[in-house]
Design a protein around this nucleic acid. Structure first.
Length: 153
DNA sequence: GCCAACGTTGGC
DNA sequence: GCCAACGTTGGC
């Protein structure tokens, strides 16, 4: 079992959008960064747990929990010329990008804000709080996961 | 909206 | 393969 944190701009797709999705599931498409892609492809497995993080918004925070309901598959949005995620360099014969499927588990009663995460002495090594960390898919350690879960209650 | 920190592109 | 220029992310 591995733990992850995935970012989303709530204006684009929020934890509430995930909750109200069909079967409370969504295809996590549009990751166009190689490091994040490699985590999706090589690290993320079915049943892994994911912190859902709201970025580029008034109060950046971990707002809920999701589960990986389906591991890596080809991100077909890269083939769709009409999609914002279209990438001409990704072809059917040589697909570049990966998607996974997320299943809603919980919306936290108490979101854990970035401010709170940064101030927490137990989370000083967390990828999210590192300087200049822009990764939209990032690993979370078991200790970090347990600690953050305890803060959400 | 600003801008620091990254990532990517492309000329050489 | 270097690196300048450009594009993106994301907190503030």
């Amino acid at each position: 079992m591995n733990y992850w944190l995935m970012k989303s701009e709530p204006d684009e797709f929020s934890i509430d959008d995930l909750k109200s999705s069909k079967h409370q599931k969504t295809a996590w498409q549009g990751i166009r960064n190689y490091q994040a892609r490699n985590f999706l492809r090589d690290g993320v497995k079915q049943n892994d747990l994911v912190f859902f993080y709201h970025s580029s918004c008034k109060e950046p925070a971990i707002v809920g929990l999701a589960e990986i309901s389906q591991a890596a598959s080809i991100d077909i949005s890269a083939f769709d010329e009409a999609s914002a995620y279209f990438d001409a360099k990704s072809t059917l014969n040589n697909p570049k990008w990966i998607q996974v499927e997320l299943h809603f588990m919980a919306k936290f009663e108490h979101p854990i804000t970035l401010k709170q995460l940064k101030a927490d002495p137990q989370l000083t090594n967390m990828v999210l709080v590192a300087k200049g960390a822009r990764l939209s898919v990032q690993p979370v350690t078991a200790d970090e996961f347990d600690h953050i879960m305890s803060l959400s209650r």
